[in-house]
Amino acid sequence: MQKHIFMTQSDYERLSSMLADHAAGRQDLKLLEEELDRADIVDVRELPADVVTMHSVVRLRDLDSGEQKTYRLVYPSEAGRGESSLSVLAPIGTALLGYRSGDTIEWTVPRGVKRLQVLEVLYQPEAAGAPPV
Rank of each mutant, 00 (worst) to 15 (best):
T70A: 09
V133T: 06
H55K: 07
L116W: 08
L60A: 00
D64P: 07
M1S: 08
I92T: 05
L97M: 02
E35S: 03
G129M: 05
P91C: 04
P125V: 03
G25E: 06
R45K: 14
T8L: 14
A128Q: 10
I105D: 03
V74R: 13
V44Y: 11
V88G: 04
I5C: 12
D50W: 15
L36F: 01
A90I: 02
V58E: 03
M7N: 06
S10Y: 12
V42A: 01
A39E: 01
D28G: 06
E46D: 14
D11S: 07
L29Y: 03
V88K: 14
I105K: 10
R115K: 13
G112R: 06
S17D: 12
T53K: 01
R72G: 09
E46W: 02
F6L: 14
R111E: 14
L119H: 14
A39V: 09
V51T: 09
D103I: 01
R59M: 03
Q117L: 00
S101L: 07
Y12C: 00
M1E: 04
Y71T: 13
D62M: 04
Q27T: 05
L116A: 02
P48D: 01
V121N: 04
L29A: 08
G98P: 03
S77G: 10
G80D: 07
D43K: 07
W107C: 01
E83K: 15
D103S: 04
G112C: 08
D37P: 06
S16I: 00
E34K: 15
V118M: 11
L97P: 12
P132G: 06
L86W: 05
R61M: 13
P48V: 04
S77D: 11
R72I: 12
I105W: 00
R45T: 15
G98V: 07
Y75C: 05
Q117K: 02
D37K: 12
I5S: 12
Q9V: 10
V51H: 10
L47V: 08
T70W: 12
K3Y: 13
T53F: 00
P132D: 01
L73G: 11
G82Y: 14
A90N: 07
F6M: 11
I105H: 04
Y99T: 03
Y123Q: 09
L122N: 04
S87Y: 01
E33H: 15
P125N: 12
G82K: 15
T104W: 09
H55L: 05
D64L: 05
K3G: 07
Y75K: 12
E78V: 05
A127L: 02
K3F: 12
E35L: 03
L63Q: 11
G98H: 13
A90K: 13
V109M: 08
T70C: 04
E67L: 10
G102D: 02
A128W: 06
G102V: 04
R45D: 15
S16G: 07
A79L: 10
E120S: 04
D62F: 01
G25H: 14
S85L: 15
E83A: 13
T108H: 08
G82S: 13
V44S: 15
P110W: 02
M7D: 10
Q27V: 02
D50C: 08
Y71M: 13
E46C: 06
E83N: 14
L119Y: 07
Y71R: 15
V109W: 13
A79N: 08
Q124A: 11
E120T: 03
T94Y: 00
I92D: 03
E83G: 05
V113C: 08
A49E: 15
